[in-house]
Nucleic acid binder design. Structure first.
Length: 230
DNA sequence: AGATAGGATCAGGGAGATTC
DNA sequence: GAATCTCCCTGATCCTATCT
């Protein structure tokens, strides 16, 4: 059984873990970035963020774990953006989005059934930490991962916005230039959100939530037995 | 056990705002 | 100006607690 420390993390910890995971795969592609932004080799933080692409590293050089003070990423000229190896061509992205939309449209959840605990945690985390106005491709992704219809996911966000309007929203753009409205915490973690990045965050968040709830249920079952043996 | 009330959630429609 | 999005309102449904 996994220890509680391993599964009980804040949502931003999940995002930060993801950023570290992606570090290895992006390190090669970002190696041409201005290295003057890196902390000095002697810095205790430099090892923690070693290999992390600079867009995930704060101005202090630390990995963006619940990050604040993220250094603005060096602007990449538009003509260069499309040539970056980790960005999918637009046509491929369109096909991918259509596939996901078809999958989401095929989901038939029970009418008016309330979201379960796992779905609620994931949705709330997205709402509180990433965005209260997810664009349609992200709604589709959530519908697929959480097995709710697109309509239900849309309505959940609409209703939640009605109930709690607190919190800041900042304007941003996707890697393809599409308009986004994100939470400040999301832009501090990553300035250039994409469908792929959001999908990975969503998958990990969903997995970890499931594991945590599983662990908590097991604990609840074990506790009475432990008390009896005392 | 069945009836009832109240709160929470889901979903649809209309009106106004925004974007292209 | 048309299309799209968001907000607001409303009704339906589900769940739980309480009463008879």
């Amino acid at each position: 059984m996994t220890s509680p420390q391993a599964v009980c993390q804040t949502p931003l910890d999940v995002l930060a873990d993801l950023a570290i995971q992606r570090a290895a795969s992006f390190a090669v592609y970002d190696s041409h970035d201005d290295s003057s932004h890196s902390p000095p080799p002697s810095s205790p933080l430099s090892s923690a963020s070693a290999g992390l692409p600079k867009r995930y590293i704060t101005s202090s050089g630390s990995a963006a774990c619940g990050a604040h003070h993220l250094r603005p990423r060096k602007k990449v000229p538009k003509s260069h953006q499309s040539s970056r190896l980790h960005l999918k061509p637009k046509q491929e992205l369109k096909i991918r989005r259509k596939e996901l939309m078809d999958r989401a449209c095929a989901i038939k959840s029970l009418e008016n059934s309330p979201v379960n605990e796992q779905q609620l945690v994931v949705l709330k985390t997205i709402y509180n930490e990433i965005t209260m106005y997810p664009p349609e491709p992200w709604l589709v992704l959530m519908a697929c991962v959480l097995h709710r219809s697109l309509r239900q996911i849309k309505n959940w966000f609409s209703n939640t916005r009605q109930k709690n309007r607190w919190g800041d929203v900042v304007c941003a753009r996707t890697d393809l230039g599409e308009r986004l409205r994100l939470r400040p915490s999301a832009t501090e973690l990553c300035e250039l959100w994409s469908d792929d990045f959001f999908e990975e965050v969503l998958m990990i968040l969903s997995y970890r939530t499931a594991r945590r709830l599983q662990w908590e249920r097991a604990e609840a079952v074990n506790k009475p037995a432990t008390l009896q043996s005392c």
